[in-house]
Design a protein around this nucleic acid. Structure first.
Lengths: 282, 282
DNA sequence: ATATGGGCTTGATTTATATCAAAGAGTCAT
DNA sequence: ATGACTCTTTGATATAAATCAAGCCCATAT
């Protein structure tokens, strides 16, 4: 980076290569709460921003509700500890998403939340949230809407986890993660970095890491997917979608779709694009 | 019933043997939304009350959000249809509970809801809900709180469904149902009428009716439970609680508790009373 | 380079639960 | 009552996924 460019970027001007935290938060707030001109408040919120290192704990079970966390960068997981010491992953949270909605009801968190990667987050304190609601009357409505969407998303998840087999759950999860990461489809393939360890992914889906691994390798042998460590490439999104929407025995459909194995040439939009879990964002 | 009594009851006076629908709704509104004096609105809402027969459909997937349903009497189920035609039960709703929260986000229901028994329900239309929110500022806050609680409840459910075996899920479900029905514990035993068919209960938990049946019979053979058709009696709530909170291998605890089989005499509060799923009510 | 350790894969085996099939019990209508 | 339902139980079998147990890969530290 040239000296000149760096100088410019240090002025934190918005819209450039590097943007100021205030602007990022303002933009996020705007996109999350759908209100314009929350700049002043954003400035205030900037003071509540902080970074997290890998594995750092945001909060534990039983902690009181302090406010919502807006994720600017990084991925978090929230989980409960079962008595045998195992972690039951409740959810992963991605950039642009809010953490802590469920604690608004009781005023107490019932799960632990930690960072899976280096993360930048911003605490919207309960008081500030109230201010925001008062300044912009639509915010409370919007907050209710977001929470309701969360309920809807979890209802879909219920269906996904109860009604389906490992293969199907895993396909759903991968597609959902890719979507929430906001990765683009290039050349009919989706590449992304899996933000969590496989144990976590497995625990989230109610599976063991072994089953997860086997499933992935099977897909790899079909050429539908390629993994190298945490680098994932979904080579055949359509096949994965088909697997994800397959609720029980329907070997037919998938293999009809996958005929020709490694490199197939069906029309790009085969009408199979159900987005099962993709309900939490607008 | 004597002529005199009937006359009295026909005057619908509150607090007596029979109470007027308006008062019930008013009381429900008060207890649900935690506001006093919603009598006037209750009167308006009474006009939106109606009864449902067994199996009657309240709404289908894709129907637009009209408003919230407050259940006065009866039990409803909401479910999605998977492509193989099977029903995936998302949830059961009991008297005093609201139906439709999840549709507030998208404005569209993504599941079908039908009555499992004869039911009396009351539609709180979206517009009336807005009125209510404007008249009583706390109502919107309360509504948000209720929705957040719903998220929390579903998060617990995720843990329950993912991390546990059939036995555990079933124990949880029965205890949860008993609690939501509001049945009392008499003589250290809990009796209630199961509001749904076993297929439904099984589908809710991601099990088959066969597994459910076998599990129940096993408990019956231990004397922990008695069923006759839909009449359930939990004879040993403590044992069931222990089973429900047991997330993996812990044969120990349960059998320590159940020593003596049919009729045991441990102290009533053995510290095992976790209320896993009991998060939705206050 | 060589060790060390965590996460991932792989194989052999077990187990819980689904599936298939059929018989019993309860309920309703004729 | 009798038959025609639906719902539930029960048994035999199949299967998906868990468990147990190494071994492998890769990154980091020595």
């Amino acid at each position: 980076m040239s000296e000149k460019t760096r100088n410019r970027s240090e002025r934190w001007h918005c819209g450039a290569r590097r943007v100021c935290p205030k602007c990022i938060i303002s933009n996020l707030l705007t996109s999350v709460f759908l209100v314009e001109g929350s700049g002043a408040l954003a400035q205030q919120l900037t003071r509540n921003s902080f970074s997290m290192t890998v594995g750092q704990t945001l909060r534990r079970e039983g902690d009181p509700f302090q406010g919502l966390i807006l994720i600017r960068k990084g991925v978090l997981k929230t989980f409960m500890i079962s008595e045998d010491g195992g972690e039951q992953i409740i959810d992963f949270r991605f950039p642009g998403e809010l953490v802590g909605l469920s604690a608004m009801g009781t005023g107490e968190h019932m799960a632990c939340t930690i960072a899976l990667s280096a993360a930048d987050v911003c605490l919207i304190r309960a008081e500030d949230l109230d201010d925001l609601c008062n300044t912009y009357p639509d915010v409370r409505r919007r907050l209710l809407e977001l929470t309701a969407r969360e309920v809807a998303r979890r209802e879909h998840l219920h269906q996904a986890l109860c009604g389906t087999r490992a293969e199907c759950r895993l396909a759903m999860a991968l597609l959902n993660i890719a979507e929430r990461l906001g990765v683009a489809t290039v050349d009919h393939a989706i590449s992304f970095q899996l933000p969590m360890a496989r144990v976590d992914l497995a625990a989230y889906l109610g599976l063991t890491p072994e089953t997860t691994s086997r499933q992935l390798r099977r897909w790899e042998s079909h050429g539908w997917l390629h993994t190298r460590g945490r680098d994932f490439t979904i080579r055949e999104p359509d096949v994965l979608h088909a697997l994800a929407s397959r609720h029980s025995s329907d070997e037919e459909g998938v293999h009809r779709l996958a005929r020709g194995d490694s490199e197939c040439q069906w029309s790009p939009d085969s009408g199979l694009g159900t987005d099962e879990l993709a309900v939490n964002r607008r």
